[in-house]
Amino acid sequence: MKLLTCPMNGTRPLSEFIFGGEYREGPDQNTCTDAEWAAFVHNRSGAPGDKKEWWYHSPSGTWFIAERNTLTDKVSRTYLLGANNNNSNTAQEASK
């Protein structure tokens, strides 16, 4: 079993975590075309590489971001969303 480091709780076995898919920024839903939205909803960047992903530490209920290489399965860093990056997020954008 792999280990993963939750930014709040430290390094724990993978069995305590739930994978939440890639962290993705969607198009502005008010201006995008239907096709662009459909592509956002359904398509994924499936090729291997460094990805920003959602992970959930189940016992503590912590969602965080892990930067992981999907080819080597090595995690380079983990952090709380917003704590270590300056990304605006999909829904906030959308709700403006």
Binding site: I18, F19, E22, P48, K51, E53, T70, L71, T72, D73
Partner: peptide, 8 residues
Amino acid sequence: PYEVHSTR
């Protein structure tokens, strides 16, 4: 349960 491009 998660994406990996390997056969480990």
